[in-house]
Design a protein around this nucleic acid. Structure first.
Length: 1086
RNA sequence: GGGCGGUUAGCUCAGUUGGCUAGAGCGCAUCCCUUACAAGGAUGAUGUCGUGGGUUCGAGUCCCUCACCGCCCACCA
């Protein structure tokens, strides 16, 4: 038997026990064979770099709300938890820690040794993270917890890599990558952060090399060209100087060469439109341009392109740590020309080298100018140093390469083939969210025709769609499938929807401009690339048909689908001749296939030392968490997953890649809905981050406000906005814990306490009373009429209280409907707010206050109250799981038969359940909707408020009873007579003398006017105060009368506005005028 | 350079197809420890809804302009 509840809800006393209860019941666990339609969410696996912060708390709260809701609604709901190894990020934090604690660098360890250290870190933080999620109440299926580098996920990664490799979608390329010289690894484009820095433009003179044109044109005064650069140090690797062919100087320089200072290399002058013409009045680039561009293919992405175009040498002059180096592709003979001077530069850091080189140009009178220049430079998101465009060998996934044999056309307006990874992602998009040029014209046309205002927007088609997606869709004859779209009829097409839909644009634009994905990382922490190669080719040539045992074996295994070979830039299947210089890449399907790997290694092959980009394994997450590549029941039941909830910054990094992979490997979208939540900023609008030190541990908030309080507030904050601010302070309560806290969470904490106490009150009355109310109320005459006169609940209770009952039940029906709809639409804020308002305002402030005096004697009231609490706890459970589950147990004990009572009221199904987490989500009891009761009760509320106002104004002590009489018009009198009496006596502490149509105002009474009724509070008259009050009221009334009259005086309004609005305005005016008249009379009487 | 979001009460934010006499929480003021809750109750004060135009009977809500704040994307010599 539940004992008495404490007067306060103290989360710390309750939460652990509730967690234990769920755990004992395996309440979070689901099997694919369980009943109900499948519903699944994969957690965006948090990085094991650090503990979770408020952004995670927000995201996981929302996911838990969805999961708990769908679970209650009868779905077979599963939430798959796990963590991400976060390659570079984790390795970096561990490197920093080891350096700090042991004073050693990574390179001083063996690979295995260091990976073990990272593994230890991972274990520590995975435990921390898991504990945080559990403490928050996240109902993840912990029996299915995954890690991106555990055995199952590793198998998925190998298989995925193999299949892509076999499909020709993975290739090796020499490219300029974003190189982080500190961590010494390549970064993906999206791991590079642009930062504004104050730099300089250096104007360097390159002397022209003497040649015969000088003889042809002796008048030429050009002895040197001046290049403008922000990076003088890369001039060592220049292999050309470019000029725009339209530049007037171009003709004179045609065919000439320049002698590159310091290195004394002669490089050609090439002409290309790419070069910006100098123009003092032009844009920034033109203003700074000298008209000559130094071309350094190995150290600048633009120059790389030019280099390919003009077949220029790629001269790399930097080491991986960004020091000047002659060991990484700088031809020796070239270098020798530089002599001693060059030797002094070698070994210098890139910035030291810059200074030295600029200084040399200055001393040799070749430095024409230096201008300050503010520009943005890519920085590593890990080490925060400027990235270096660096030439290296990397593995790529071809994102726009045609998949399969059948030639597919391009997606209109793009260079993306329909059948390519990027094409898959684009085609997966919901039709109404995708703006593609073909169907767009039609949609915009429909909307724009004959609509002046549509003019602008039809020029910008995407606006037209954006402005009104629903009507755009419904008005179009039918969502015209573009010619190519209909053809495939793939089940996954159009299945992916973004909420809010504006983020669909980000997704679309990303894929339309997608570049190949660099997937190799020069790290130790991650999935090793399953490719073996021979560093130097043997002297003889391998080819099919030649008696080579190794090759024969390899091709045999290839036929067994155990490996795939690449050589000379193409897949080898066994039939082709291979050139002498071809490098073999052997991708082994299963890296524990030792028969293959042993042979390879005995033949001098070695496994690629690099690991895969961490997003490669996360891209498989919706499949790998469910057992892919095995064809598991889990996979069949729960992939595609239902909803992905994540942050917008991750749309490109993660959402994109999951989509491409899931479709490629399974012909299914990874998820159907993508909910993008807001980003939590600190009080100053800055992103929360570790480096700023403004991050907040959810456990700190739970400590000060409880898990439910935190969750509730987070849900309440989740509107469709982009960012939310969370001002944070040090917790100084109770002597100061030193933890972070924020008063934003007070609302949630207070609400949990309110619910606790409301239930506590109910229990006190339900428990004792339930025994002696054996006889259920007589069945009502005529079952509830939908939306009509409401219910007459009881033949025993006073009719005045029956109104309160029908009213609160109508409000209850409304909140069931509204909160369910809000969840369906991802409107977490209105879901939370709606329940807050119902429970606090309607149920506590009014219903409970009204029934207080009679509850003990009125079985119907007790049933209504129990029903309201039951449904409230159910509705609230997804967001406040702990307090609701705790109270549920007590409610079960105190009102075990409430579901039967509920059936009587309106056939409401609230089947009993021992655990709330497993209780059924309530259906909307439409029969309880009673607008009339709501309107009538609304008048009562106004009357009570009006009387309270007068009391306050006259400073009547709350305890003091006031005599009251009231005049209500005959029309209302009949039903109103009894009702206001009890309400007013209970809620406004008055003693009602008489209420009727012919009651006169006593001379010494203050008057409160509500609609057609006048309430007289005896013995309060005090001329000055009354005058002041009435004058003020009159002022307000006159103001609104003016407004309303003005509106009605406007012929156009009466003419064009909807009739019911005009009618409503008239009624408002009449009411205001009537009240004003009364007030004036009273003023006159004073 | 392109795109997106924000600008509503002292603070943090709602305001869903234009109809508002503009709301909530916190904070503030006055009163109340009334037998669920002082993390509570009652009452109250506070807004030219960033600027300037436009459309409309009517604009916080739609269109355009400008300003400031923030985010994302972009190969930014």
């Amino acid at each position: 038997m539940p004992t008495e509840l404490a007067t306060r809800y103290t989360p710390a006393d309750i939460e652990p026990a509730i967690l234990q209860r769920w755990n004992d019941a395996r309440a979070f666990h689901a099997e694919p064979t369980d009943a109900g339609p499948p519903y699944s969410i994969v957690i965006p696996p948090p990085n094991v770099t650090a503990a979770l912060h408020m952004g995670h708390a927000l995201n996981n709260t929302l996911q838990d709300i969805l999961i708990r809701w769908r679970r209650m609604a009868g779905d077979n709901a599963v939430w798959l938890p796990g963590t991400d190894h976060a390659g570079i990020a984790t390795q970096t934090v561990v490197e920093k820690r080891v350096l700090k604690e042991e004073g050693k660098r990574r390179t001083e360890f063996q690979r295995d040794e260091f990976v073990a250290k990272i593994q230890a870190w991972k274990d520590e933080y995975e435990a921390t993270i898991t504990n945080q999620l559990k403490t928050m109440g996240c109902s993840c299926d912990w029996e299915r917890q995954a890690f991106t580098m555990d055995e199952t996920r590793a198998k998925a990664v190998r298989e995925a890599f193999f299949q892509l490799f076999r499909g020709g979608l993975i290739y090796r390329g020499k490219r300029l990558v974003n190189w982080d010289p500190v961590t010494q690894t390549a970064l993906a484009d999206d791991e590079v952060e642009m930062e504004e820095i104050d730099g300089h433009f250096y104007y360097l003179r390159y002397p022209l090399a003497p040649d015969k044109s000088e003889i042809r044109n002796p008048q030429s005064e050009i002895h040197f060209v001046t290049v403008a650069t922000t990076r003088p140090e890369t001039m060592l690797g220049d292999s050309a100087v470019a000029i725009n062919p339209r530049d007037p100087r171009a003709a004179a320089l045609r065919g000439r060469k320049v002698r590159l200072p310091i290195v004394n290399r002669e490089v050609p002058i090439i002409e290309d439109e790419y070069v910006v013409l100098p123009d003092p009045d032009g844009d920034e680039k033109a203003r700074y341009s000298s008209g000559f561009l130094k071309v350094t293919p190995a150290h600048d992405p633009n120059d790389w392109e030019l280099g390919l175009k003009y077949n220029l040498p790629q001269i790399n002059v930097l080491a991986p740590d960004a020091t000047i180096s002659d060991k990484h592709g700088w031809p020796e003979d070239d270098r020798l020309r530089g002599g001693d001077l060059l030797d002094t530069l070698i070994g210098l850091d890139r910035y030291e080298a810059r200074q030295a080189i600029v200084e040399w140009f200055r001393q040799n009178d070749l430095l024409e100018d230096v201008k300050p220049y503010r520009h943005s430079v890519g920085h590593s998101y890990r080490s925060h140093v400027a990235i270096e465009p660096y030439l290296s060998d990397q593995w790529y996934v071809a994102t726009k390469k045609q998949i399969g044999d059948a030639k597919s056309e391009l997606i209109p307006g793009t260079d993306v083939p329909m059948n390519s990874l990027a094409g898959y992602a684009l085609r997966a998009m919901d039709m109404t969210q995708r703006s593609d040029p073909l169907s767009l014209g039609e949609r915009a046309g429909v909307r724009g025709s004959g609509d002046e205002r549509g003019q602008r927007s039809s020029q910008s088609p995407s606006d037209a769609i954006e402005a009104n997606p629903r009507s755009a869709l419904s008005q179009a004859p039918s969502p015209q499938p573009s010619p190519s779209e209909g053809r495939g009829g793939q089940p996954w097409e159009g299945q992916l929807r973004f909420i809010p839909d504006r983020y669909a644009r980000t997704f679309q634009a990303w894929h339309e401009n997608l570049r190949d994905w660099c997937i190799s990382r020069q790290l130790w922490w991650g999935h090793r690339i399953p490719v073996w190669t021979r560093p130097s080719m043997p002297a003889h040539t391998y080819a099919m048909g030649e008696p080579d045992l190794l090759l024969a074996k390899l091709f045999e295994w290839h036929r067994q689908d155990r490996l795939v070979m690449q050589g000379a830039g193409r897949l080898l299947t066994g039939a082709e001749k291979i050139g002498k210089d071809a490098l073999y890449f052997v991708c082994v399907r299963n890296d524990s296939d030792s028969e293959i790997t042993d042979l390879l290694e005995s033949e001098g092959f070695v496994q690629d030392p690099d690991v895969l980009d961490t997003w490669f394994s996360s891209a498989l997450w919706p499949m790998s968490t469910l057992g892919w590549p095995d064809d598991t029941p889990e996979l069949r039941a729960w992939n595609p997953t239902s909803t992905l909830s994540t942050a917008r910054e991750i749309i490109t990094l993660w959402v994109s890649r999951m989509t491409m992979f899931n479709i490629y490997f399974r012909s299914q979208v990874p998820f159907k809905e993508v909910f993008i939540h807001a980003m939590i900023q600190d009080g100053e609008g800055r992103k929360m981050s570790k480096s700023l030190g403004n991050g907040v541990d959810p456990l700190d908030i739970i400590h000060s406000h409880g898990s439910d309080g935190m969750r509730f507030t987070l849900a309440q904050m989740t509107t469709q906005t982009q960012d939310v601010r969370l001002p944070v302070v040090r917790d100084t309560s109770g002597g100061g814990t030193g933890r972070n806290t924020s008063e934003k969470f007070d609302a949630g904490r207070n609400f949990a306490n309110k619910l606790w106490n409301a239930t506590r009150f109910a229990l006190q009355n339900l428990e004792g009373a339930s025994n002696n109310s054996e006889s259920p109320p007589a069945p009502r005459v005529g079952d509830p009429t939908p939306g009509g006169g409401g219910l007459s609940l009881s033949s025993t209770s006073p009719s005045s209280l029956a109104l309160a009952d029908t009213w609160i039940l109508s409000r209850l029906a409304r909140v069931v409907h509204d909160s369910t709809a809000a969840l369906q639409n991802f409107e977490f804020s209105s879901y939370a707010q709606g329940l807050y308002d119902f429970i606090w305002r309607d149920l506590c402030d009014w219903y409970i206050e009204v029934v207080k005096p009679t509850l003990r004697d009125d079985a119907d009231e007790r049933d209504v109250l129990a029903l309201c609490l039951d449904v409230s706890l159910r509705l609230l459970h997804p967001v406040m799981p702990f307090v609701t589950e705790a109270l549920w147990e007590h409610l079960n004990a105190a009102a075990p038969d409430r579901h039967e009572a509920a059936r009587r009221f309106g056939d409401i199904a609230i089947p009993p359940s021992a655990l709330l987490i497993r209780a059924a989500w309530p259906g909307v009891p439409m029969t309880l909707m009673d607008p009339k009761a709501e309107e009538e009760f609304g008048l009562i509320q106004q009357a009570v408020s009006a009387v309270r106002q007068v009391r306050t104004l006259y400073k009547v002590p709350p305890r003091q009873k006031v005599k009251l009489s009231a005049k209500v018009p005959a029309a209302m009198a009949q039903k109103a007579v009894a009702r206001p009496t009890l309400f007013l006596e209970t809620l406004a502490n008055v003693e009602v003398e008489e209420i009727g149509p012919k009651v006169d105002k006593p001379a010494d009474a203050a008057v409160a006017v509500v609609g057609l009724a006048e309430f007289y509070l005896h013995g309060l008259i005090e001329a000055d105060a009354e005058k002041a009050r009435l004058s003020k009221r009159l002022e307000e009334l006159d103001k609104s009368i003016k407004t309303l009259e003005g509106r009605l005086g406007n012929a156009a309004y009466v003419d064009k506005a909807p009739p019911h609005l005009v009618q409503q305005t008239r009624e408002q005016l009449e009411a205001a005028q009537r009240e004003a008249r009364t007030v004036r009379e009273q003023l006159a009487a004073l």
